[in-house]
Amino acid sequence: MDAVIENLPVFLEGFKNTLGLLVFSGIGALVLGVIVAALRISPIASFRAFATVYTELVRNTPLTLVLFFCAYILPYLQFSPGYFLLALIGLTVYTSPFVAEALRSGINGVPVGQAEAARSVGLTFGQSLSFVIMPQAVRMVIPPLINVFIALTKNTSVAGAFFVFELFQASRQVVNDRGDEVIAILLAVAFFYLIITVTLGQIAARVEKKVAVLR
């Protein structure tokens, strides 16, 4: 146990970086995901096709490969803003198609009658999306979106293997120093991850309960 207490600053440093990765790549993935989802449902066929291909390619690539590209190939191409930013880019790109799919399934989850009603009272594409579909879709989208962020939290650990000092890397360093207390150290790190994931899970459950009342 004293290995954990002694190294608390190291863990907190890692925790800070994990949170940073989560928040910034979460925001980035949200922005990119909204764009991809919009392309995916747009009336223009070539945009739809592009968004579909992007989603399929990125979703079927392992995160390790995406991060490898960011950490090794991008600097080789004279683009090196530091490993933290590179990992941020990788996590953003990797998470964006999952966000887009969550959004799209939310939009598809709104009953068709709603869209038909909006159209039949004369609203345009933009109006029916922003006044009728989106307000309903957003509610349905929040729980799966939070799931995406929970997964993102866990995925930030992979960045540890690509030169970012986050929780997983912190645990590896402390384990190297104190091989005698491996179990306590790793459980402490698991505890830090659970702080984030369990909180997010609780929020998702609460939101889902509220949405269920609305419908």
């Binding site: 939290t153 866990k154 650990s157 590896r172 491996v182 179990i183 790793l186 659970l194 899970g201």
Partner: peptide, 17 residues
């Protein structure tokens, strides 16, 4: 507990413990 933990951490745990 299992679902809230990164797989990577679990791998390291099993490998070391």
């Amino acid at each position: 507990f299992v679902r809230g933990m990164p797989v990577l951490l679990m791998m390291l745990f099993i490998l070391l413990v």
